[in-house]
Design a protein around this nucleic acid. Sequence first.
DNA 1: ACCTGAACACCGTTCAAGT
DNA 2: ACCTGAACACCGTTCAAGT
Lengths: 225, 225
Amino acid sequence: MPEKAPREAVSRRSRPAKAPLSQDAVVTTGLELLSRHGLPGLSLRKVATALDTGPASLYVYVSNLDELRSLVLDRALGDVARSGGGHWRSRVKDILRSYAEVLMGRPGLAELALTTMATGPNALRVIESLLAALIEGGMDPGAAAWGVDLMQLQVTGIAAEQSARTGQEDALGPMARATAAASPQDFPHIHALHEELLSGSGRSRFEWALDALIEGIARTPRPTS
Amino acid sequence: MPEKAPREAVSRRSRPAKAPLSQDAVVTTGLELLSRHGLPGLSLRKVATALDTGPASLYVYVSNLDELRSLVLDRALGDVARSGGGHWRSRVKDILRSYAEVLMGRPGLAELALTTMATGPNALRVIESLLAALIEGGMDPGAAAWGVDLMQLQVTGIAAEQSARTGQEDALGPMARATAAASPQDFPHIHALHEELLSGSGRSRFEWALDALIEGIARTPRPTS
DNA sequence: ACCTGAACACCGTTCAAGT
DNA sequence: ACCTGAACACCGTTCAAGT
């Protein structure tokens, strides 16, 4: 039962007033769809449908799917915490922890980050604050530059592993089964360590990995080429 | 102009003798297609066409695309060098170097490895030899177990970055442009370090990353939980 | 058990045409 | 310049039917 048109006619059109397209709108609904349906939700056709148009229309605002993915990733990275205070080392860990939490906070986002490089302002801000903290900690600037790369990759990888793990109903996935079944003759060390290989809460492994990285990066001289 | 049938009739059939299907055949042609056409080449439909059948037929040997990908990855990992002799540390580096070379040796393989966990015998063999070398080096077995994970992830990530870079004609991709354009006000450290961020041959960065990882893993005590 | 053809429900991208 | 419909050339997966 449609109500009567309120007040004045809505300028020539009747429908819900379909917001105008824009890159911002495209990226926003892309992130929404990702959040709701994971990686398969982030398709040009689905974004187009959500915006009540055809897929061809999006090419005005985005040059292809890869660009959309990278824009959506950067948008999501806007939630990474600003670097707070405290000792440089705990600041580095805070940033990376927040980074991991953001990646794990939406289904498919960590996996997206693994295959897409974000180059927008939010990604740059994360890099910038990591560099600042490391350099403040007295780290050689060159090592800091290379190290940031390592840290981000590592954290992204851990986040992807972790969220793949929680996405499935079986807690540990095929790797657990494979290592558990590894024959003691062919794979003695795996056999002996198969519990260790998968042990530890995600949390404690994460903290350990960060410490190991920071330690290694700080102590390893770069080649003098 | 078909020649006359040679010798005897080829048991009831005329055509090129279409090899029988098998999981092995499916994986082999999957790896072939990947090698020739990169990641887009590795599709169930293309494998089916190459094997002169329909896509539905493959489901007898492979339960879905993900399984095919993980089988193809493991097959490719068969080329990773067996652990040679020498000091444990150089052995670790040799294995990881070979692992990276294998991943970069076929287009799309490193990217595949980033999103797919190989759990076959070849993947296990790589893990086994890394564990053996680290433990021989006196590393705490628990740290070795966690560390192997870190190393593989890191090397896979570097390989993917590197082969994405050589796959494109522009040497450095959008990250270079983004960091080069970073404003000195908003991103002072990136601005100051933007050459360092992208400097160094792949080779020297790789070696440095391995040393940093080994160093960090060896020195960082695991939490006593 | 193995294999098939046909269908289903999707994709990204392009292009000529309209405004 | 922006937007569109329709087409093109693909996908993975399922299913009823055959052998």
